[in-house]
């Protein structure tokens, strides 16, 4: 089975990182300036499609999306 952390980390790197910045599971994504809050929507839609979930807008906050670990916690909650 795919490791969720690895899948999301790889998506973040491919989607948002345009230099050699290292991204770990704890790297601050939004507060660290890697993911523009403007571009979060594609991450949200990716997660919803990949895991067949629906994340309400009020839960898709910059805080909840601020690291791979935090995103995984959020996704796990909706997978149930």
């Amino acid at each position: 089975m795919e490791d969720m952390h690895e899948v999301i980390r790889e998506y973040v790197i491919n989607e948002y990182v345009e230099d050699d910045t290292e991204v770990t599971n704890d790297t601050p994504l939004i507060s660290g300036g890697i993911v523009d809050s403007f571009s979060m929507v594609s991450l949200k839609r990716f997660l919803e499609n990949k895991y067949s979930i629906s994340i309400p807008d009020d839960r898709a906050t910059p805080e909840a999306f601020d690291s791979v670990n935090k995103i995984c916690t959020l996704v796990q909650e909706f997978i149930g």
Binding site: E18, D36, F38
Partner: peptide, 16 residues
């Protein structure tokens, strides 16, 4: 443009 986008209720995404 970024400011205009912020004032609009439509969904927003970006491309490289």
């Amino acid at each position: 443009i970024i400011d205009g986008i912020r004032l609009c209720s439509a969904m927003h995404d970006t491309f490289k």
